[in-house]
């Protein structure tokens, strides 16, 4: 299951993350919130530098996440699936 553990960590710590880093991008590896960044490219670069090809999550911190919208009929690939 891709990033399941990291997403659980994100959700469990969202309240404190929001208080400290609203709008920033957090980097999570397993159960550990590593740090927060202002730019997506910086967060990715730090993630690959530290964890290589191991799974890690980069996600923007918002108390209420605004969904992306696609008006065309497509089937978004669910996060919780085996790949």
């Amino acid at each position: 299951m891709a990033l399941e553990k990291e997403l659980e960590t994100f959700r469990s710590k969202l309240q404190e993350l929001t208080a400290e880093h609203e709008g920033k991008l957090v980097r999570i590896h397993g159960n550990e919130v590593v740090d927060a960044f202002s730019s997506y490219a910086d967060a990715l670069k730090a993630g690959y530098s530290e964890f290589g090809l191991e799974p890690f999550l980069v996600k923007q911190i918002h108390a209420i996440e605004q969904a992306q919208f696609i008006s065309r009929f497509v089937d978004p690939c669910a996060t919780r699936r085996t790949i």
Binding site: A2, L3, L7, L44, G47, F56, L57, V58, K59, E65, Q66, A67, Q68, F69, I70, S71, R72, F73, V74, D75, P76, C77, A78, T79, R80, I83
Partner: peptide, 20 residues
């Protein structure tokens, strides 16, 4: 994947899906 976002499409109905 290195991220996950909520996505709304005509196929998801009113509830957005977590997407890779």
């Amino acid at each position: 994947p290195t991220g996950s976002v909520l996505v709304n499409t005509p196929s998801t109905g009113a509830t957005p899906h977590d997407t890779e």
